[in-house]
């Protein structure tokens, strides 16, 4: 996500004071945001600030916490990588080829976004649990258990990240529209070279965005994961679930510490990737 002012708001310097309703609209927006976002975030900060240094060390050196954070971020990273491989393939095929079922598949891409996470969660769990049809088949064929393992968590995160990966890339591929490709082909470049020199560089910024969105969404994901995860401490327990467990144990300090770490990592990763993206854009000559 792009945390800098979006480029569409570049109108700085043009005074527009002739329009009415400045105070009202800005005031209302600010009040609404303060109440809905700022106040809760400040409460989190305050709660975390109650922990002293030793408290932080104690919470964050707990290997259950470490494992949960590792699992959430690690599997989100892995899922984002998988989506970064299959997302472009799907996007490319959906944009460039006509084949039976193309429109249906294209519509399917939005399902992970529109389907409530809990519904996705129980569906994935009943499919990929060791007793479910897919889970059983994979266990027998490859000897790998999917449900109730980190692999199951990753699978769920691939599911939720998929639309971000595909939908971010599709418009770029469509804009590419064969023009650059055609030019390259006319100049005698062979296919692998066109891919390497034209298609992949044009896709790069979008791929970074796709990766970031898929990762950030996955790291915080809860509903679609908990059913398939099995939730074993130190093995398949995700960080958001551990926040809930700490809250239920009445351990606010522990819950806040994990929440703050999650928030900071997601935020800083997104900011970093935004910077990186800006760099690529400049390098590639896009304004």
């Amino acid at each position: 996500m792009n945390l800098q002012a979006s480029p569409s708001l570049r109108s700085a310097g043009r005074p527009r004071r002739s329009m009415p309703g400045f105070g009202l609209s800005l005031g209302y927006s600010t009040v609404y945001l303060s109440f809905v976002v700022l106040l809760p975030m400040a409460a989190l900060a305050a709660s975390a600030a109650r922990l002293d240094f030793e408290g932080w060390i104690k919470v964050l050196s707990d290997d259950r916490v470490i494992s949960a954070l590792k699992l959430s971020f690690g599997s989100a990273l892995f899922a984002a990588c998988v989506n970064l491989v299959f997302g472009p393939v799907c996007a490319y095929a959906l944009v460039h080829f006509r084949f039976p079922g193309r429109r249906a598949l294209d519509a399917l891409v939005d399902i992970p976004f529109a389907l409530p996470t809990a519904v996705a969660g129980i569906a994935l769990a009943s499919l990929y649990a060791p007793s479910g049809p897919m889970g059983k088949a994979i266990l027998e064929l490859f000897g790998v258990q999917v449900g109730y393992t980190p692999l199951g968590v990753t699978l769920a995160l691939i599911f939720v990240g998929l639309p971000f990966a595909v939908r971010t890339l599709q418009p770029v591929l469509r804009d590419l529209d064969g023009e650059a490709e055609l030019a390259a082909a006319l100049l005698g470049a062979d296919r692998p070279r066109i891919w390497r020199r034209v298609i992949i560089p044009s896709l790069a910024p979008a791929m970074v965005t796709a990766f970031a969105l898929s990762f950030a969404r996955g790291a915080g994901e809860y509903g679609s994961v908990i059913f398939i995860a099995g939730n074993f401490p130190r093995l398949s327990e995700i960080a958001p679930l551990l926040i809930i467990i700490r809250l239920e144990e009445n351990n606010y300090a522990g819950a806040s510490a994990i929440a703050v770490v999650m928030l900071l990592v997601s935020l800083s990763c997104l900011v970093l990737i935004n910077l990186f993206q800006a760099l690529i854009r400049r390098r590639l000559g896009y304004a």
């Binding site: 649990a129 060791p130 007793s131 449900g147 109730y148 099995g230 939730n231 074993f232 401490p233 093995l235 467990i245 239920e248």
Partner: peptide
Amino acid sequence: VPVLDAGARGAVTTFAQRAI
């Protein structure tokens, strides 16, 4: 004990349904 569920019912699910 590989897993401590939050409630007795969760433990039942783990044992009976997930066969753990």
